[in-house]
Write a protein that binds this DNA or RNA. Structure first.
Length: 428
RNA sequence: GGAGAGAUGGCUGAGAGGCCGAAAGCGCCGGAUUGCUAAUCCGGUAAGGGUCGAAAGACUCUUCACGGGUUCGAAUCCCGUUCUCUCCGCCA
């Protein structure tokens, strides 16, 4: 959510930004509602002021003056209630409009409506060349007995899976490797709740209930299965005031991610590329409200994400995501796409991680502020998030890039200490 | 799941219908003083909305977990909710 005052003071810039982001919105409504709100506040203030004054006189008033004052007090109470009701309604409408307006955008983000408009920043690593037809992860997993998709469908439906044997060890190894790396980078690591309340989801920018929601919600409660630990890691500081000297806060969390994938039917449904549940290690940061600092933090997250895939020896490219494709809260967003030799005809890149600088868009709604000792007031912190590793996608890249002609798969060296072997062989 | 206790400013913690946006302490800021990794003294110090103002600021309203209610008037009384703590039960 953006600041109301800011929105009204920068209508043209906001209008252009909405245009670039592909968000249709009537900003005139916003201004009209803001004006209504202002009038109601002024009227209400005036009435409450008189109300205070009236009731304040009563203890000292003479017996003959009292009844009139009390009667006036009753009148005022009714008038105040009326105004407050109107203001509540206006505030609600205002909030609705405000929530649809996306964050402002980094000046360097490529302008465009779709994925194709994103810009490749760099390609890193050498794509493996095979002297055989590389298999996709489903076929590899089949011959090595690593994933049971049918069992997943049986117990929970399409989009669920069982990892088996070395795939289990690989999941744990990927998580451990990520955690080890993040601790070395100074992050406080944690495991997080897999459920969160509606208001936390909304604060982060998710729409927990509704037709096209990506979120599984639990009936008869205000709880939802989280789509990412970004929700819980960001939500953990809700309503807090943080001393400036304690920023930045660097946290990372292991969680499961649950996504309904509503509207994604028919898109890359094979295997474990698009699933309803996966394990992820998420990076999250709270910084001072200073673009220089949060942009720097953003670059650090990107660096960590890249180093992770470099260490696994998986080729990838970095995309600077176009305005129309980055979602409401982000000010700037990068994706890492790993090379997946089994995708498409001759291999394709597939998204494995992303990272966003959300500036104060999330913190405003979550009410996460910071305070500098000795200064008046508070400011909303900047929040950032990124994926250290999303296990299923990383697993796809790992299996497909490291497959051998004999059907075996090499384990990247950095993971071997956890997996315990250097090669997954058929029938082993 | 059952019983009880609680939720007050950045933190600790008083307050028990009007004199309370709220004592005191800590912390923080400014100053004085002595000098020596500090002590003492004095003063200041909540957040948010709105109006006016170029700004500094002035004025005003809201906020004592949240939502209702009683009342001319609620941190204070009543009801509901959430959360925390203690005890009991159950349980990995």
């Amino acid at each position: 959510m953006l600041d109301l005052q800011y929105l009204c003071d920068n209508l043209e810039a906001v209008r252009e930004n909405c245009e670039n982001r592909g968000v249709k919105i009537n900003l005139d409504d916003l201004v009209a509602l803001r004006d209504q709100r202002r009038e109601l506040i002024m009227k209400g203030d005036q009435l409450r002021s008189e109300q205070k004054e009236t009731s304040g006189k009563i203890p000292k008033a003479s017996a003959e003056d009292k009844p009139a004052l009390i009667a006036r007090g009753k009148e005022l109470r009714a008038e105040v209630a009326e105004i407050e009701q109107q203001q509540k309604e206006v505030d609600l409408k205002l909030r609705e409009v405000q929530n649809q307006i996306p964050n402002m955008t980094h000046p360097d983000s490529p302008v465009g409506r779709s994925e194709e408009d994103s810009v490749t920043v760099r390609e890193v690593g050498e794509k493996p060349s095979f002297d055989f037809k590389p298999k996709d992860h489903v076929d590899i997993a089949e011959s090595l007995d690593l994933i049971d998709l049918e069992a997943g469908s049986k117990v929970a439906g399409h989009g669920f899976y069982f990892l088996k044997n070395e795939a289990v060890l690989l999941e744990l190894a990927l998580v451990q490797f990520a955690i080890e790396k993040l601790r070395a980078e100074g992050f406080t690591v944690m495991t997080t709740p897999d459920l969160a309340r509606d208001d936390i989801l909304e604060g982060i920018g998710f729409n927990p209930r509704g037709e096209e929601s990506q979120i599984y919600s639990v009936e008869n409660t205000d709880l939802n299965l989280v789509g990412t630990a970004e929700i819980t890691l960001g939500g953990m500081k809700k309503d807090e005031v943080i001393d400036l000297e304690n920023l930045p806060i660097k946290v990372a969390g292991i969680s499961h991610c649950f996504r309904t994938e509503a509207g994604a039917h028919g898109r890359a449904t094979r295997g474990i590329y698009r699933v309803h549940q996966f394990t992820k290690v998420e990076i999250f940061g709270f910084t001072a409200p200073d673009l220089e600092l949060s942009n720097e933090f953003h670059q650090m997250i990107l660096r960590i994400e890249e180093e992770f895939f470099q260490a696994l020896n998986i080729p990838y490219r970095v995309l600077d995501i176009a305005t129309g494709d980055m979602g409401g809260p982000a000010y700037r967003k990068y994706d890492l796409e790993a090379w997946m030799p089994g995708r498409g005809e001759n291999g394709e890149y597939g998204e494995v991680t992303s990272c966003s600088n959300c500036t104060d868009y999330q913190s405003r709604r979550l009410n996460i502020r910071c305070k500098q000792p000795g200064t008046k007031g508070t400011q909303f912190v900047h929040t950032l998030n990124g994926t250290a590793v999303a296990v299923t996608r990383a697993l796809i890249a790992l299996l497909e890039n490291n497959q051998q002609a004999d059907g075996s798969v090499k384990i990247p060296e950095v993971l071997q200490k956890w997996v315990g072997i250097d090669l997954i062989k058929p029938g082993s």
